[in-house]
Design a binder for these strands. Structure first.
Lengths: 205, 205
DNA sequence: AGTAGAATAGACCAACTGGTCTGTTTATTT
DNA sequence: AAATAAACAGACCAGTTGGTCTATTCTACT
């Protein structure tokens, strides 16, 4: 399954798709960049669309693995949730940030039944599940709603960051998340006595 | 400036771009749908990209006009802000909703300097300004931060709605907005007891 | 050493891309 | 009625698209 040529293909394709879009980057560009013959592509993936799907799936795996990695260093699920948004901040301020590929995919393949669109949807579900796992462990009420809200906020941050290319959206998103968490927490207890005395140290990146 | 042919062209192009994407819909499709000669397009717009820009600008005008319309029926700026999210809910549940065109544009034109990308960015700014006007009139503190947060939440709702095609994202967004407003309000009422003062200090758009 | 499978280059394909040019017809204005 | 401008159909363009096919070379296992 995993050959070096296949890997090169996936990496180059991913980079080109990210920076120049799916439709605008032709197959030949990818082949040239990867230094690979055309038949290698078609033997491994079958079609351009399936290459795209493979790229999206791998990107999804990478991102979730990375997020779970950064999150695993934090013990409290509350901190873990906020950690996700810190990770976003780091991502946005990286030199070569050019937007979330899944949002691009969903935009470039408007047919919801198309394979790339479905791959993107799958990624969103995985991300929501990740949040759900954390909100559940944090024992907040309405964990489901809260999880999809957090996912939505993250999407909004992604979307805005693509436009303004600052880490600000991630900081804003983190603040909102903090407020939602605090609320979901205090609502669970007595309204006048929030359990989390918040003076969370703010990231200074 | 406004000829009937030009209008047909804009309308058909908009519909096709919305439903099938910018790159995938060829000029000939648009011309056929609009029943218009090729030279009419090039005389009026100069190029496909400029047609796209014209479509985006008109869509931006339409949307802002519509939003300002629905908002003008509400007297309280607080209600007006929430009214925006109600409008989103209505949009998402409409039969032919297929996602926000500006997000699609920004995804299909990754070069931030390209005309369509700039048009999309302009729209985001107008929307943020609309929010800012309302948060200012509501006399909430940190109106700027709040406005860009609201715009970001709206983006997130748009983005999520494109994926799951329900009005749920708008409802969630509205709830979040409500919470933020409530908070920005109570902070105003007790300025001597600011919640998380470092958090607000950081923000600069 | 021999052989099977992977990878190669590159010719080739029909379809389509955005865009130009021409010559004619239709409306509008004077 | 004449003149001006807009819109027309459609031929035409070079370049590109995703994809196929062939014939050859490389590489790894038995």
């Amino acid at each position: 399954m995993a050959s070096p040529k296949r890997d090169r293909l996936l990496n180059c394709a991913r980079h080109l798709f990210e920076t120049e879009g799916f439709h605008t980057t032709g197959i030949d560009r990818i082949l040239e960049e990867a230094g690979v013959a055309k038949m290698t592509l078609y033997n491994n993936f079958g079609s351009k669309d399936m290459l795209i799907v493979a790229v999206l799936n791998r990107a999804s795996d990478d991102m979730l693995q990375k997020l779970e990695g950064t999150v695993s260093h934090l013990n409290d699920p509350y901190e873990q949730i906020l950690g996700i948004f810190d990770a976003l901040a780091g991502w946005y301020s990286s030199e070569d940030f050019c937007g979330c590929m899944f949002q691009a995919a969903v935009a470039e393949f408007p047919d919801p039944e198309s394979e790339p669109a479905m791959a993107a949807r799958r990624h969103l579900m995985r991300l929501t599940e990740l949040f759900l796992d954390m909100t559940r462990r944090a024992e907040l009420n309405d964990a489901e709603t809260l999880a999809s809200m957090l996912a939505m906020i993250a999407s909004g941050a992604n979307c805005t960051a693509r436009q303004i290319r600052t880490q600000t959206p991630a900081l804003h998103a983190r603040q909102i998340a903090e407020i939602l968490l605090e609320r979901a927490c205090s609502r669970r207890l007595s309204p006048d006595n929030p359990i989390r005395p918040q003076a969370t140290k703010l990231q200074t990146l």
